[in-house]
Simulated scan of single mutants.
Amino acid sequence: MSGLEVQRLASRDSQIPVIFITGRGDVPSTVLAMKGGAVDFLTKPLDEDALTRAVDAALARAHVLRKAAEDTAALQALYQSLTPREQELLPLLASGLLNKQAAGVLGITEYTVQVHRGHIMRKMQADSFATLVRQA
């Protein structure tokens, strides 16, 4: 199995950063590796500084990806804490509808929308409506 095939298989299951090290790199392989998400494509003999920079870049990318996945999971957990009605209301509010307009769409009173909106803000741990819109 070639390195490009291993990269393709690994990228299906995870977002592990990949550094290619080869003794006989060519331009088409390099292009395919980089398009596949490789952090770097190094040729032998290795330059120690280039390898160190590539590993540092790979670790930084892994950290960013892990943080993004954790943030997404936390946000998803907050969203799942909403009731079905609150989940129905959130996209209406985030799309810019006024409370009165969202109430009309859902066939409920404006006061009920205000109550649900307060619950949504608390459950989503949003300190402002702008934060809630970004989360949505």
Score class of each variant (00 low, 15 high):
113 V>D: 00
106 L>N: 05
127 D>V: 06
131 T>Q: 14
109 T>V: 01
107 G>E: 08
126 A>G: 06
99 N>T: 09
131 T>S: 08
125 Q>H: 15
105 V>L: 00
118 G>L: 10
129 F>G: 00
105 V>W: 00
103 A>E: 04
120 I>L: 01
127 D>T: 02
120 I>C: 02
99 N>V: 07
112 T>V: 11
108 I>S: 07
118 G>P: 13
124 M>R: 13
100 K>I: 11
124 M>S: 09
105 V>I: 05
131 T>G: 01
130 A>I: 12
112 T>L: 07
104 G>H: 02
129 F>Q: 05
118 G>E: 07
127 D>C: 00
101 Q>W: 00
102 A>W: 08
115 V>A: 10
110 E>R: 14
130 A>M: 12
114 Q>H: 12
119 H>W: 02
112 T>Q: 14
120 I>N: 01
119 H>C: 02
103 A>W: 03
124 M>D: 08
127 D>S: 09
114 Q>D: 10
128 S>F: 11
116 H>V: 03
113 V>E: 02
129 F>P: 05
99 N>L: 06
120 I>K: 05
126 A>W: 12
127 D>L: 06
124 M>G: 11
112 T>R: 14
100 K>Q: 13
110 E>D: 15
108 I>D: 03
101 Q>I: 00
126 A>I: 11
130 A>Q: 15
108 I>F: 08
126 A>F: 11
104 G>F: 00
112 T>H: 14
126 A>N: 10
105 V>K: 06
122 R>K: 15
119 H>P: 00
106 L>K: 09
105 V>G: 01
119 H>M: 03
110 E>G: 11
117 R>Q: 12
117 R>E: 07
116 H>E: 06
112 T>W: 04
123 K>G: 02
107 G>P: 11
128 S>C: 09
109 T>R: 02
118 G>F: 07
115 V>R: 13
129 F>N: 03
106 L>Y: 06
119 H>I: 00
129 F>A: 05
122 R>T: 12
121 M>C: 02
121 M>S: 10
107 G>F: 06
117 R>S: 12
108 I>R: 10
109 T>M: 02
102 A>T: 12
115 V>C: 00
106 L>V: 10
103 A>C: 05
109 T>F: 03
107 G>I: 08
118 G>A: 10
112 T>G: 04
119 H>T: 01
99 N>D: 14
129 F>Y: 07
127 D>I: 03
101 Q>S: 01
101 Q>H: 01
113 V>A: 02
117 R>L: 11
127 D>N: 07
